[in-house]
Design a binder for these strands. Structure first.
Length: 1004
RNA sequence: GGGCGGUUAGCUCAGUUGGUAGAGCACCGCCUUCACACGGCGGGGGUCGCUGGUUCGAGUCCAGUAUCGCCCACCA
């Protein structure tokens, strides 16, 4: 056996205690110290005495047991943790003189071994016995005997609300503010786990910014505007809105959820009141969810997209656009949903694969020279045909350009035109242009200056009267029919006339739908309000580049969209529950409405409803009368309101308020990537035009939530998981953990496994906090007390973590910050705490300085861990923080400063590396592995640990050797030189020389 | 048709300047209750979609390609 070459007497300030006080367990010594000397003392068999003996050396209890001159560990009163059985042995402690002169090293190490593996368990028992609930009341917020996550949500949500923890400071300057353009959820929609997912991402950022010292402006809006709400109100109350009816203040709904099919017609204002009643209920449900989830929203900063402010802001912004000529009105072909009977915008389209059939139809050449075959999927539009078109280079049709043909059945003479959009290889290469079958028709119609022959009505049926020049008799057979019925009839008629060549060929092709609609869109001519976007393409593209995108690749989504813009933004909708246009039109003496000179409302009068308000210079009696006026019947597109959410939340409309200037341009727009072309784009359009600015500097895109089959979750698919159930089952912190693990923009699976891990982490934080605070007594950390190299090494690591996590958050990579912090935290629990807990408890042989060093390092690290985890696990971190901080006096953990590396400067002293700490836990891991391989408990005593090292590991390891020995129950450590000829680990080989596999397990 | 992203252990996913493949879960084994059994320790498991190229060296860079998903498009 090699003699230890380690330090003599004192190791890094660890001073060996007097021999007389050493507790020795006989059995352990017999089992493990066989190679060393005989025992010198009898063990003390009584647990109580052991406990007492070990406890007396604990710095944490000294102050409250015996006022001695040697110990003053805490600046303020620690826990009352001394065991009842404490005896006056305090003074046996000798912290000044190692006096090892009479001892040979063998004895010294053996004794140390005995102490460390014999005492700590009993030591550790000390606080547990000594922490009756009554005493714990001395804690700021009673640390429970058995910590639990249950009930934390309700408890802390209440505290935060009454304390105003998340209130925005309206006096903060723009530089001090961090403002968030929170997405207003559609309250009439169902709650689902996707909400929880993406809002959690935002909340982690908000909490980080708040702790970083920013005044966080984090409002909540409710999107109760638009069609989903209308649809619910119609079905729930059994009513229909009718803009032509007068408001009836006495009117009350007769049905609640049991409405008959024939609906009652009510005025727009009555209808809107119902919408507001119903959505108010929905908002409560959402708020409950958000509070349970722990969103750090300022609940004083709320709005609804249909409330008075939203209407005022929308109308004000509209009037300004109209004044700038950015908004204009036009009668033009419009994308039209025949069921909702409203115009829809390009952004609200989606393609759906539909069954269709090519019908090969003969057009007779007017010169009598035969027929030209076209192929169409919409033969029912034959009566609406205004031209044929082929590609200018198509040799087959070149001869016919400029000539005319006659439409089958209806006998209309139409020109044959050339246009580059016509595709040579599609169908027969020549297409019929109808007004209007699709958007290409509109392009051709406009660019080739063709006449209009509209036959599809706003209800989707063929209109009653044939357009001019169309044969009336055949037309009568399709009039009044739906498109589908008309198509069947036309096929019959074409067969009868022999102008259908062959049978229709079935195909599948994409057809444009309104995203909320059930039947394909039609294109009808109507008068609508538009906002210019196409002409601003370049400016918008520049704005898109100026936004910082998280993740960056999402930028191309917007650029794609901007490049593909093919028309201005149609903002008027022929619906009821929305923001009305603050516009009237005069009516001339003949009853014709004058649309060219709209009468705009005065900004000061907003919000107004032109259906009930009277324009200046008119009386209400003149409404809808010749020489009178009429109100614009339409409402704004939901995105026309949503696109000014920064202005709404910032109270842009409030005359005396400077709030808007303090929060705009905002810092962050979080949202789903599915609404880049709508919400993100339109907000950009509005801010660009109105403020010549970005609406916000960053946008954070969340991914989709997928069910376990990797399908997008949606209500219609019936695979939606109710978030409330998950929150109840796993706890809010656990759900937040799951959400925060997902990188920005990454589609994510609902994963109960990940939620369990989050719960595990939260529970671990409870227990680790309880344990550490049990050791330190909850005293505040004092960086100057950290002296041990091993403690400083851990803090070096911690400072790296803080720097990295802070950087992650700055880059909106909350997930990486969480990953790092979580990983460090488990290492802290498994390695550092295990390594130093015996020293921190302060067994007899350990110096006060060494013990305090561990205690204060533990305090520093615990405080840092709790704060770093606070953005992710707000409930459990507040709970454990409250155990050792007076939350009432010094505030919530969520308003504490975010950790900075400056906090560690003093504590780290001159130590700049974690070499010793790293090497020590590395060796400790090897010891564990060896014990596991020997199928022994981690507490199994090791008599002699041999470390063969190719490098000078000894020097590195020495400062932490006593901790290593204590944590590994190791009596002695021996260093050897590695044989360079043996294949081995490049750094070292650990051999547990003397585990006696036949020995009995250590006695309890 | 244009664009974007994914493809790494059975599963869910990391892998930041190219340098000996990672985590958690699941699985297997061990340790029992001395903060935590809602625990601890350890182990097995991957030719990083495929093919080329650059390089001393490629999961990482380049060029193709397959496949899944998404966005966009003038889809007769």
């Amino acid at each position: 056996m090699t003699w230890p070459r380690g330090p003599t007497g004192s190791v890094s300030g660890v001073q060996f205690g007097p021999v007389e006080t050493t507790a020795i367990a006989t059995d352990e010594l017999e089992a493990t110290a066989a190679a060393t000397d005989e025992l010198e003392e009898e063990p003390d068999e009584t647990g109580a005495t052991e406990s007492a003996r070990s406890s007396v050396a604990r710095p944490a209890v000294l102050e409250s047991t015996e006022p001695t001159e040697t110990v003053e560990p805490f600046e303020r009163s620690p826990l009352e943790v001394q065991p009842a059985s404490v005896t006056d042995t305090t003074n046996t402690r000798d912290t000044t003189d190692p006096t090892d002169t009479d001892m040979n090293r063998d004895n010294e190490f053996r004794r140390e071994h005995c102490i460390t593996h014999g005492s700590p368990p009993k030591n550790a028992k000390g606080p547990k016995q000594a922490h009756p609930a009554g005493n714990l009341g001395a804690m700021k917020n009673a640390m429970p005997e058995k910590p639990t996550l249950d009930g934390l949500e309700a408890r802390w949500d209440g505290v935060w609300e009454s304390a105003g923890t998340y209130r925005f400071d309206p006096t903060a300057t723009r530089e001090q503010v961090y403002s968030i353009d929170t997405p207003p959820p559609t309250v009439s929609g169902s709650l689902h786990v996707g909400h929880v997912f993406s809002y959690t991402h935002t909340d982690t950022i908000a909490r980080f910014q708040r702790m970083s010292g920013k005044a966080v402006f984090y409002p909540m809006g409710w999107d109760d505007n638009g069609l989903p709400t209308e649809r619910r109100v119609q079905n729930f109350y059994g009513v229909n809105g009718d803009a032509s009816l007068p408001y009836d203040p006495e009117w009350k709904p007769k049905h609640f959820g049991d409405a008959p099919k024939d609906r009652e017609s009510i005025s727009r204002r009555n209808f809107i009141e119902l919408c507001q009643q119903l959505t108010a209920e929905d908002e409560k449900v959402f708020e409950t969810l958000w509070r349970t989830l722990g969103l750090s929203v300022d609940w004083k900063q709320t709005y609804a997209t249909i409330d008075e402010r939203s209407q005022r802001v929308s109308q004000k912004a509209f009037l300004r656009m109209a004044a700038r000529k950015q908004a204009y009105q036009l009668e033009a072909p419009t994308l039209w949903d025949i069921d909702f009977q409203t115009a829809v915008a390009q952004a609200e389209l989606e393609d759906r694969e539909q069954e269709a059939a090519y019908h090969r139809v003969a057009f007779h050449r007017s010169d009598g020279g035969g027929v030209i075959f076209i192929e169409t999927t919409r033969p029912e539009l034959l009566a609406a045909c205004v031209a044929l078109v082929a590609h200018p280079d198509d040799e087959r049709y070149k001869p016919f350009f400029g000539t005319t043909v006659t439409t089958p059945l209806f006998g209309v003479e139409v020109p044959v035109k050339a246009h580059p959009l016509a595709q040579i290889d599609k169908g027969s290469g020549i297409a019929m242009i109808c007004t209007f079958g699709d958007t290409t028709d509109v392009t051709w119609w406009r660019e080739l200056q063709l006449p209009t022959r509209a036959i599809i009505g706003r209800n989707g049926r063929i209109v009653a009267d044939a357009p001019e020049g169309v044969a009336a008799e055949p037309y009568a057979r399709i009039a009044g029919k739906t498109a589908k019925q008309a198509q069947a009839e036309i096929v019959i008629m074409l067969r009868e006339s022999g102008e259908l060549d062959g049978e229709p060929r079935k195909i599948k092709h994409p057809v444009k739908f309104f995203e909320k609609g059930d039947r394909p869109l039609e294109i009808v001519t109507s008068r609508q309000w538009y906002v210019r976007t196409v002409n601003d393409r370049e400016a918008l593209m520049t704005r898109a580049e100026d936004i910082t995108w998280h993740p960056p690749y999402m930028q191309s989504r917007l650029e794609n969209w901007i490049e593909g813009l093919n028309g201005d933004w149609c903002i008027s909708r022929q619906r009821f529950f929305g923001v009305p246009f603050p516009v009237w039109y005069s009516i001339d003496a003949y009853g014709e409405v004058n649309h060219t000179n709209p009468i705009f409302a005065d900004e000061a009068s907003l919000p107004i409803d032109p259906q009930s308000a009277t324009p200046l210079g008119f009386t209400e009696a003149q409404r809808n009368q010749p020489c009178g006026f009429t109100g614009d019947p339409d409402v704004m597109d939901t995105w026309a309101t949503s696109s000014v959410t920064p202005q709404i939340a910032g109270q842009w409309d409030e005359p005396g308020s400077d709030l808007f200037d303090r929060i705009f341009p905002m810092d962050l727009r979080p949202q789903g990537h599915d609404i880049i072309r709508t919400w993100l784009f339109t907000t950009l359009v509005r801010a660009n035009a109105e403020h010549n600015s970005l609406p916000w500097n960053n946008t954070l895109l969340s991914g989709w939530i997928l069910d376990p089959d990797r399908k997008k979750m949606s209500k219609s698919k019936g695979n939606v998981v109710t978030p409330i159930h998950m929150l109840e089952e796993y706890g809010s912190d656990a759900i937040r953990y799951w959400a925060a693990c997902a990188r920005p923009g990454v589609d994510t699976t609902v994963d109960p496994g990940q939620m369990k891990i989050g719960r595990k982490l939260a529970i671990k934080l409870l227990n680790a906090s309880k344990f550490v605070l049990g050791i330190t007594g909850g005293a505040p950390a004092d960086a100057t007390k950290v002296t041990e190299i091993i403690d400083r090494g851990m803090l070096v690591r911690l400072s790296h973590l803080v720097a990295a996590a802070t950087q992650d958050f700055t880059e909106y990579d909350y997930a990486r910050a969480l990953e790092r912090t979580e990983s460090f935290f488990w290492g802290f629990c498994d390695d550092y705490v295990e390594l130093v807990k015996i020293r921190a408890y302060g067994a007899e042989a350990i110096s006060l300085e060494a013990s305090l060093s561990a205690q204060h390092a533990l305090s520093i690290c615990l405080s840092t861990m709790q704060r770093l985890l606070a953005p992710f696990l707000p409930f459990v971190t507040e709970e454990v923080w409250s155990w050792w901080h007076d939350v009432d006096a010094t505030g919530s953990i969520h308003t504490q400063p975010w950790p900075t590396t400056n906090e560690f400067t003093d504590a780290m002293g001159a130590v700049t590396t974690d070499d010793t700490y790293a090497a020590t836990i590395e060796v400790l891991g090897s010891v564990r592995r060896a014990k596991t391989e020997a199928k022994r408990s981690m507490r199994w005593p090791v008599d002699n640990l041999l470390i063969k090292s190719a490098l000078e590991l000894e020097t590195t390891l020495t400062p932490g050797l006593e901790d290593l020995k204590a944590a590994g129950s190791i009596a002695a450590v021996v260093f050897g030189t590695a044989n360079p000829r043996e294949p081995q680990d490049p750094e070292y080989v650990v051999t547990l020389a003397l585990i006696d596999p036949n020995a009995a397990p250590p006695k309890q």
